[in-house]
Design a protein around this nucleic acid. Structure first.
Lengths: 336, 336
DNA sequence: TTTAGTTACGAAAACGTTTACGTTGCAATA
DNA sequence: TATTGCAACGTAAACGTTTTCGTAACTAAA
């Protein structure tokens, strides 16, 4: 039974229109009544009802974000940036955890659309046809984050995985390594799998390093256990490796861990470079050299793009964010 | 210009009341009209407007969560649990990032209340008087998560920090250690500081181990750098330590890292036990023994408590969740 | 055949705002 | 003095639902 604008109006002896005008600083009232109304608002502890506002304004000042997984530093940093930008623009963010499950994703999209969010950020996951059709039909603006669609014209923000992987491999080469392996993620992942593998390959071939299928190991995902398995497999099929590019930081930490178990010293015997620059990266032993994505910045950018769509109506250009080699202690110069 | 219930009604040749009844499966309509209406809904791709629903039902099916920090595994796991429980109950969650800033916190509370969220989860932060007054006046149910209030009757869910710290220290003692140090967090933190320190002290004294001020080192926070600083300080003032209780996993990982820099072997020379059981803990070298909090479960519990308040109106009892020693590789049995 | 009860609806109010439009009173101008 | 213009409001419709109440038609019982 909280107070409404009517209560304020009645007590202040004005119409609700006047109260509304004062609340929104629209002018059309005298200073005297303004103070009187403000005083009543103060006394009643009146809080305007954003639901009613949303109904009439058709803006809820809320955006929805879909993540495949919540408990991951990668997602966390993205979310951090999104939340910041949203807050700066006077909006809130609803988080959804899809578990990469198509049905759940559709349910969440439906929920968000029923709640009339102003926009949707779809992160770290492949945009299926079904999803795209659904949200375009609902005419809700959408941005892809840390993913991209080749089939549909949905603006995205991400780093160029191909280039970043190239840079990672080149860093290893520049440090004098020639026996370079890769612990990749999912072989057929169009976003995080293939481009990184191809970038890696290109860097080697550009620098005259021969490459056999034994140089690369494939995994089921991009997680810690995949990294420990990965190293074991790689060592088996490519015993001469002196440097490894892991397709994610979690996998890199996994290989660090596996190396420790196997009694292999990093970076003395094997150098490791990761991908992502998660918080973890600086906490590992040794601290992980990695190619960093500006995750928080990416999140911010995505949210801001959403807001520009809402204001201008124009779909903004996609943004390729810069990656950067973060040198720490897990890669060593190799001298022959 | 999306379709409304009116459009559906008009095309199906029924009143909006009937459409509404069908949507909510309330009965009072024939099977024939039900199918006809459903067909129209399907054709139009009609999505009910949750904003309008919220206005009249006074339930938004949305809860708000306040965190001091987003990019931390601790928070992430809590959020994971909250999101799960919320989703199971047909609700969404809005995340807010307070940065432990009083002004920002108040702004967020106001925002959440204006948005008429059904409930609020206040996590990992001290509940100030101002916050409490504000949300009680608004009559929005609130649960404290991973924190607790001594001054106000707000139900909470957390582990017993005192007991958990006691258990951690006892684990070290049981493993034969007698020169035990602690790298604690903020000395005057009522929730995560003092209870853990006191629990630690009690365990030592209960087992006849003398304790000087040199056994404990205090930090500014609970983060990685605090852990690396902590170890250095502790070694300086207490060179004989063989086992260390770090007040958080991040700090524990920090001490691992510092130990590595200093050439101290863990667990051979020094054993380390952490607190939290974050994802990090199993990824460290060596894998971290720690006292685990069931973070996701705690998040779930908090959300579920919120829902029971909404349904029953009764404030539920606070829940003390069980902690558990997770044995991994960073603590070694000591033989004399 | 009448009556009572039930089923299947429709009309309209209500939720708490914003806003288009109308109205009043007063000052300034002709 | 009559007219105009503007500031300062008030009235009421609108946003898209849910729900109460009323009613027509039909069924079953008397």
């Amino acid at each position: 039974m909280t107070n409404t604008i009517k209560d304020v109006a009645k007590i202040a002896n004005v119409s609700i229109a006047t109260v509304s005008r004062i609340l929104n600083a629209q002018g059309g009232y005298s200073e005297k009544t303004k103070f009187r109304v403000l005083k009543v608002i103060e006394e009643l502890g009146y809080q305007p009802n954003a639901v009613a506002r949303g109904l009439i304004n058709k803006r809820t000042h809320t955006i929805g974000v879909l993540f495949p997984k919540l408990s991951s530093s990668l997602v966390t940093d993205l979310l951090d940036g999104i939340e910041k930008a949203a807050n700066d623009n006077g909006s809130s963010v609803i988080v959804c955890h899809t578990e990469s499950n198509g049905e759940k994703t559709m349910k969440y999209l439906q929920l968000l659309i029923e709640k009339r969010v102003d926009g949707i950020i779809f992160a770290s996951e492949i945009l299926k046809d079904e999803y795209y059709q659904f949200v375009t039909k609902a005419k809700v603006p959408m941005i892809l984050l840390s993913t991209e669609s080749y089939a549909y014209p949905v603006p995205f923000v991400k780093v160029n995985d191909y280039h970043a992987a190239y840079a990672a491999a080149k860093h290893l080469i520049d440090k004098g390594h020639t026996n370079i392996g890769m612990i990749s993620g999912k072989k057929d992942d169009i976003i995080a799998g293939i481009p990184r593998i191809e970038g890696f390959k290109k860097a080697l071939s550009d620098h005259g390093i021969s490459l056999s299928p034994d140089n690369i190991v494939f995994s089921r995902g991009f997680n810690f256990p995949d990294g420990v398995e990965g190293l074991k497999k790689l060592i088996g099929q490519f015993p001469d490796v002196t440097a490894i590019f892991a397709a994610s930081d979690e996998m890199a930490i996994g290989t660090l861990s596996a190396a420790y178990q196997l009694g292999i010293k990093v970076p003395e015997e094997i150098s490791v470079i990761g991908y992502d620059n998660l918080n973890l990266a600086e906490m590992s032993i040794p601290p992980l050299t990695t190619v960093g994505q500006p995750l928080a910045k990416m999140g911010e950018a995505a949210a801001e793009m959403l807001f520009t769509i809402m204001e201008t109506g124009e779909t903004p250009e996609s943004r390729i964010m810069p990656h950067k080699i973060i040198e720490r202690m897990s890669v060593k110069e190799r001298k022959e």
